[in-house]
């Protein structure tokens, strides 16, 4: 009979766990930290530095969410995920939000039951080749062997590109980024294809980065955005408006350094943004100081970009599409009002 009792107990526990379907914000507050899925091995986006501290554009985005929710950017727990693991991890509630250079697509939003917020990086796919190959354009890659990561939009973009140009190719698909890089640098493939931001990172770890060059073609649009699950609109709003707050801060000229002076500003937009005029944070279910905390502790979008991938970093990526709309880029925050 003991086993019977055990079974009944098990079933009731399972039933209860399914019933405990509170909102993500309540879960996060109860836990005391935000569970964030990140890349873990992509320089500039999510990778530990030499002190073992997570650094990167996606990491800072995650910290901004923690700052908005808790007023403390350090209340984040990072989980490193491969491209293949990332979506199931979010679907199964292992993580609360995914900040892992993930491209927004129609099928991911519908079939996978996910919502993408405002992109934190606009990317595009390209090809990295050894200079010795003597290829000047991706159109010359007919018959080439191309190294590619599995489980990414990259795989399908490459297939589409070669099909559209009526060229043959054969992919070498390796799940681990480091193993894939090794195979490419050893000459297993003629070209490596990925998002341009990643290729810059891959090239920087080559035995001799000067031996490799990017081909001019950009074969796809890759809006990389944080992702949340379907069905929790409040949590979606928080993550989405955290992204807008980062951009808005840059538009308003608020930085982590001048944010305290800005508290005295007479500009009504700034007063609303920093919570001097209360109301905005409450509407999100957060503290009115939410945006102040984001900027104070993490900085605005421009600061995050410069710190992680900008011209002063080894990646040296120009702002390009990721500049503010006023500077000819795509970063455009909806009004916080």
């Amino acid at each position: 009979m003991k086993s019977l009792k055990m079974a009944v107990a098990c079933i009731s526990i399972l039933a209860m766990s399914a019933m405990a379907m509170a909102g993500t914000l309540d879960d996060v507050k109860a836990k005391g930290y935000v569970d964030v899925g990140i890349n873990g091995s992509l320089f500039g986006f999510g990778m530990p530095d030499e002190k073992g501290e997570m650094k990167g554009l996606d990491v800072d985005t995650a910290k901004a969410i923690a700052a908005a929710v808790f007023g403390d950017a350090s209340k984040v727990k990072f989980t490193a995920l491969t491209a293949v693991q990332r979506l199931p991890a979010l679907q199964s509630k292992e993580i609360d939000v995914l900040c892992r250079n993930t491209t927004q697509t129609l099928s991911r939003e519908t079939q996978s039951g996910l919502n993408f917020v405002q992109p934190n990086y606009y990317d595009g796919q390209g090809f990295l080749v050894p200079k010795a190959l003597g290829v000047k354009s991706a159109k010359e890659l007919d018959g080439a062997t191309v190294c590619v990561l599995p489980g990414t939009t990259t795989e399908m973009n490459a297939a589409d590109f070669f099909r559209a140009n009526n060229m043959k190719w054969s992919p070498v698909v390796i799940e681990n980024t480091a193993e894939l890089n090794k195979a490419f640098f050893a000459g297993r493939c003629d070209a490596l294809t990925s998002d341009l931001s990643q290729l810059a990172g891959n090239r920087s770890v080559a035995p001799n980065p000067a031996d490799y060059m990017l081909l001019p073609e950009v074969i796809s649009k890759e809006p990389l955005a944080p992702v949340v699950r379907h069905g929790d609109d409040q949590w979606f709003d928080i993550v989405n408006w955290t992204m807008f707050a980062l951009i808005e801060a840059e538009e308003l000229g608020i930085t982590s350094e001048n944010v305290d002076e800005m508290l005295d500003s007479e500009n009504p937009s700034i007063k609303r943004f920093l919570g001097v005029t209360p109301g905005m944070g409450e509407m999100l279910g957060l503290d009115n100081k939410w945006a102040y905390n984001i900027v104070k502790q993490v900085g605005n979008y421009g600061e995050i970009f410069e710190r992680n991938v900008g011209p002063d970093t080894p990646l040296a990526i120009p702002r390009g599409l990721n500049a503010l709309w006023t500077d000819g880029g795509l970063m455009y925050a909806s009004p916080i009002r």
Binding site: A83, L87, P88, Q91, S107, Q111, P150, G151, M156, V173
Partner: peptide, 14 residues
């Protein structure tokens, strides 16, 4: 497994 993994990722049907 490799092909199935890619399929899972493209379709989201793990």
């Amino acid at each position: 497994v490799s092909v199935a993994n890619t399929t899972i990722n493209q379709t989201g049907q793990s």
